[in-house]
């Protein structure tokens, strides 16, 4: 296990390196420079030059590249032109909100995707299977932002059951400890904040999770189809093991192994798609921060946030592989 861990961690280095290089190259193809693009028409050319110098934009590209890589590794993602905060500070302020949202969405997606997918796979080609599949396909086919808008229209505006946006209402925000409101309100035992933040999480979390649940549903169903006719399942039947145990202990458990891998990819996808949910529900997360940097054409800010996403993606894939090794004894060797 230890040897696997070491070699797996070593594998993240080239992946991170390539991702960072791609990010750097992509944001350097744009003509002009970030400072000119954002404030160019409002300051004098002298000041522009001074700010370029200060930001290191006059250095050779290779020096900038080295500085960028070093910064990314040491946790310095640069300073946006349009924000007084450093990129790291912006991330620290907004990422917990996104992460909290994505976690709830992930729970929803896995919960209903795995449950319906397993049942549909077990009852292949019955009406329940067809209904489950159609539901899975339709929920995947519905655009995240559209489902969010419709839910907002009918459940928040129409029926008034949920708030239309934000993380908490009024001044209910818990005192900042971790940035995760649910966790913070539990830590400070602030029930009003807990209730409010949960209430605000439901609609964004469910609308984002529902859409991704469709992917889990289809994936789990297909895996169940395969494991249900695996040789070891027939062998378990031949041993006289009860149907229920065969399905749960053998077919379902084996069907879940690849789901862990997919869950990792999905987590990254959810993180990307949460940008849509954040937009609809005015969720003060990382996605909205990226959108405002994009809107202001602040390349430095964009580059910083994308770099952070890259680091997160690499970290997730590492965690997933380790989780897989824990679950599946074959990988450990």
């Amino acid at each position: 296990m230890r040897r696997y861990l070491v070699s797996r961690i070593a594998m993240t280095v080239p992946m991170l390196f390539i991702l960072l290089t791609v990010v750097f190259l992509m944001l350097r193809v744009i003509p002009g420079d970030p400072i000119a693009a954002t404030v160019g028409d409002r300051v004098s050319s002298d000041e522009l030059e001074a700010r370029r110098q200060a930001a290191g934009l006059n250095d050779p590209l290779i020096v900038q590249y080295g500085r960028y890589l070093l910064g990314a590794v040491t946790g310095d993602f640069g300073n946006p032109v349009t924000d007084r905060r450093s990129t790291v500070q912006v991330i620290a302020d907004t990422f917990p909100a996104s992460f909290e949202l994505v976690l709830v969405a992930m729970l929803v997606a896995v919960g209903f995707g795995v449950a319906i997918g397993a049942i549909a796979g077990r009852l292949r080609d019955t009406p329940i299977d067809v209904a489950g599949r159609l539901f899975g396909i339709m929920s995947y086919a519905a655009p995240v932002f559209w489902v969010a808008l419709i839910a907002q229209l009918y459940l928040s505006v129409g029926l008034g059951w949920f708030p239309t946006g934000g993380r908490v209402s009024g001044f209910d925000a818990p005192s900042n400890v971790t940035g995760f409101y649910v966790l913070d309100s539990l830590l400070t035992w602030d029930m009003a904040a807990l209730r409010s933040s949960l209430h605000h999480l439901i609609l964004p979390g469910f609308t984002l999770g529902l859409v991704f649940g469709g992917i889990f549903l289809r994936f789990v169903r297909v895996n169940m189809l395969q494991t249900l006719r695996a040789d070891y399942v027939e062998a378990a039947h031949a041993r006289g093991v009860s149907e229920r145990l065969v399905v749960f202990r053998h077919a379902f458990k084996n069907a879940m192994v690849p789901v862990v891998t997919i869950a990792g990819l999905q987590f990254a996808l959810l993180l990307g798609n949460s940008i849509l949910t954040e937009r609809v529900f005015s969720w003060p997360g990382l996605g909205n921060a990226l959108l405002s940097f994009l809107g202001a054409r602040d390349y430095v800010g964009v580059q910083g946030i994308i770099t952070f996403y890259a680091v997160v993606v690499v970290a997730i894939s590492l965690i997933i592989d380790i989780a897989n090794a824990v679950i599946d004894p074959r990988i450990r060797h």
Binding site: L271, I275, A310, V313
Partner: peptide, 10 residues
């Protein structure tokens, strides 16, 4: 692989 794991929408 890196491109594939990166969130496609982003």
């Amino acid at each position: 692989d890196a491109l594939y794991t990166f969130p496609s929408l982003l």
